[in-house]
């Protein structure tokens, strides 16, 4: 063992400085983010990591797509057949819906009903996807410079992903639906039900739907969309489907689980409604 004769009080002063600095940086970060201001230190570090992460991600995705047939060769034929059948069914459904849309537009015109405009969307690449398993968050390649705000909503073609909670000029942090601090006003889409509740995450792959009326009509397979209540998420964005309705013998209440339609583990690109 080595001996050390330097005075103990002054020997580790730098370590103490880093400890105090770490606490100060954490406090400053929380204050900035809570007041909706950018944290330039976090933004700088994200900027440093984003370039190599972007290159690595592009190479990894390209390689994954090119070699997918090796791992999925056997299942591709049956999947192709199932998808063809699904496309045929959806084409029929789409045709019916198009007719209904024409009727709806005509009736709205007759009533002078004011419709909501379509949302403008910005495409963004995913730079970091849940790097820490404790938080269901991700970093995307758009920021305040692209018009993103602290309440911007993030979606994919499959449905709702979450919302932006921190923006820097070139990047933004997104809180996913599955995070334990995430909550979104939700509605059962089935016309006979239209029950309203709240979908909450708990860091698992499904969401918990709470705050429903006692006798609300909910069935397994029901589609769940955003209700628009709460003011952050626009109404009508698909969240997922009810995958479990069970009775809690202790409290007498119901437990309703919702399976999100978005594949959170394979996100490469998302769209942001600024």
């Amino acid at each position: 063992m080595r001996s050390d004769r330097a005075p103990k009080a002054t020997k580790y002063w730098a370590a103490l400085v880093f400890l105090v600095l770490g606490t100060a940086v954490g406090t400053w970060h929380n204050r900035r983010v809570n007041s909706g201001k950018p944290d330039y230190l976090a933004g700088m570090f994200r900027g440093v990591v984003s370039m190599p992460a972007h290159v690595l991600g592009s190479v990894s995705n390209w390689f994954g797509h090119k070699t997918e047939w090796i791992t999925r060769g056997r299942s591709l034929a049956s999947e192709n057949q199932a998808l063809r059948q699904q496309v045929a069914e959806l084409q029929g459904e789409n045709n019916t819906l198009r007719e209904s849309r024409i009727d709806l537009d005509r009736l709205r015109g007759d009533l002078g009903y004011v419709t909501h405009s379509e949302h403008k969307m910005i495409a963004a690449d995913v730079i970091a996807l849940r790097p820490d398993p404790k938080f269901d968050t991700m970093i995307i390649s758009r920021g305040s410079g692209d018009g993103l705000k602290n309440t911007s909503v993030v979606v994919t073609r499959s449905g709702l992903v979450g919302r932006v909670f921190e923006v820097e000029p070139g990047t933004a942090a997104v809180l996913m639906l599955t995070d334990q601090k995430s909550g979104v006003g939700a509605r059962i889409q089935r016309p006979e039900s239209r029950a309203v509740g709240l979908c909450e995450g708990d860091n698992s792959h499904t969401l918990s739907m709470i705050d429903l009326n006692q006798g609300a009509d909910v069935k397994v397979g029901d589609a769940v969309v955003t209700s628009g209540l709460g003011g952050i998420f626009p109404a009508g964005i698909l969240i997922g489907s009810v995958c479990e309705v069970s009775q809690d013998p202790a409290s007498g209440g119901r437990t309703i689980r919702v399976q999100p339609h978005v594949g959170f583990d394979s996100l490469e690109q998302v769209y942001v409604i600024p």
Partner: peptide, 9 residues
């Protein structure tokens, strides 16, 4: 911490 982006609360 910058990459993990824990929610501010």
């Amino acid at each position: 911490a910058s990459c993990a982006a824990p929610p501010a609360h």
